[in-house]
Nucleic acid binder design. Structure first.
Lengths: 225, 225
DNA sequence: TTTCCGCTGCCAAGTACGTCACAGAACGTT
DNA sequence: AACGTTCTGTGACGTACTTGGCAGCGGAAA
């Protein structure tokens, strides 16, 4: 397993090499192809996961079958920790958005780590606090912004986390279909498509297969406020 | 100060009486009347707060001045902890909804506590995980449910946490104006008013001043799905 | 290649909700 | 009691969005 990503993860940053090696022995490798789920709403959960490579979407299903995405996570991020601290079934489904490699850490292993290395809990608290802040942001966006605004925000956020400089702008290989993007911003596919078309028409974006190139960050950022 | 609420708070449950007494010495008492703020968006934060009595709303303001509420918190709950773990300015404004008494705990005191009592961090992780779950719930509700559904959900949630049995139902003294209730569910005051009127007309509710009496939990619960 | 299916783009129609506008009730202050 | 202010209730109207439907496109599978 490629442990480089893990070694750099803030959660393990305080560990010395020896402790880190012991820990990696306890990790389980999980490989997923696009569309495969790690766990589903209602499952019993006793593991948290690190994303080594690829992307994962966390989603929920409404009683009548519609879907909504809580977050898109990438390399170095962790998820599935809630079921450990607040013990109850999983409240979201985790699905691979692309070819994805995860490292699973069992509840007991984590508890062992927390016992011998209490500093690690600080990192966990930070990770949770950051996630809560992001979720609060999404909540406000949903109330304050219209769909084009939310799409702009989502693209900028994805660009921050997954963007790479390209010849004429920033390439954001988000790997999401417009349907998934719509579920992420809480709107219909149709409306998101229109918003994207408008951005393209204004010269702010170029669309590619499951990716966009942001040509005018400035304007897009203004539209997102 | 009335320390009973604090003694029962899960965060301090594992402390022996001696440790608890030392801790309470480090708490600062804060009293607020309705409408007064503990901290505001953008402030520098170095304290977290327990609610001893009363209620607090956590809200955000949009660039154009509209407001949205992230949560209503009551006795025994804590807030303002995010600024400590994820150090950056406060991302929400905390305002008293009624006469409120708080106990403030400084960052350094908390760190001291975490150093001597690492078990406390588990409780903090739990509290954060629960909050994150609730926020995720709000997020899904906003996407999945219409306004009447969200109003029903909000009332049931408030009933769970602040409801007291009455002669003909459950009295929920939420202390919120309809404007605030609207900000909580992410809708306009008028629409919320109409939803409430409909519930009353169907015999599910009775309205009182900044309170409701839930007459038919069943139906209300059905409407909220 | 050909076929198929998922994804994209777009039009038309319906609707839930926001905005505006106003009036009455309740509450606190002098 | 008189007054202003804040809160509640309700109707009319416009619109941003959803729903539904359909056609073209491209990549994967046969």
């Amino acid at each position: 397993m490629d442990i480089e990503v893990l070694r750099r993860a803030p959660l393990f940053a305080t560990l010395d090499d020896e402790a880190f090696r012991l820990l990696t022995d306890e990790l389980t490798e999980v490989d997923l192809s696009r569309g495969a789920s790690v766990f589903r709403e209602g499952d019993q959960g006793d593991q948290l996961y690190f994303i080594v490579s690829g992307k994962v979407k966390l989603g929920r299903t409404s009683p009548d079958g519609r879907e909504s995405l809580l977050a898109i996570l990438g390399p170095g991020e962790l998820f599935g920790e809630m079921a450990l601290f607040d013990p109850s079934p999983r409240t979201a489904t985790a699905t691979a958005v692309s070819e994805t490699r995860l490292a699973g850490l069992k509840n007991e292993s984590l508890n062992g780590l927390l016992r011998t290395r209490p500093e690690v809990s600080t990192q966990l608290l930070q990770a949770l606090a950051r996630r809560l802040r992001r979720t609060n942001d999404s909540l406000s966006d949903l109330v304050f912004s219209d769909v084009p605004g939310r799409v702009a925000k989502a693209l900028l956020d994805l660009a921050d986390r997954f963007g790479r400089p390209a010849t004429d702008g920033v390439l954001v290989a988000h790997e999401l279909t417009q349907e998934e993007l719509a579920q992420l911003v809480g709107a219909s596919r149709e409306t998101v498509n229109k918003a994207l078309a408008e951005f393209v028409q204004r010269g702010w974006l170029r669309l590619e297969a499951r990716a966009v190139v942001i040509l005018d960050m400035q304007r897009l950022r203004q539209r997102s406020r």
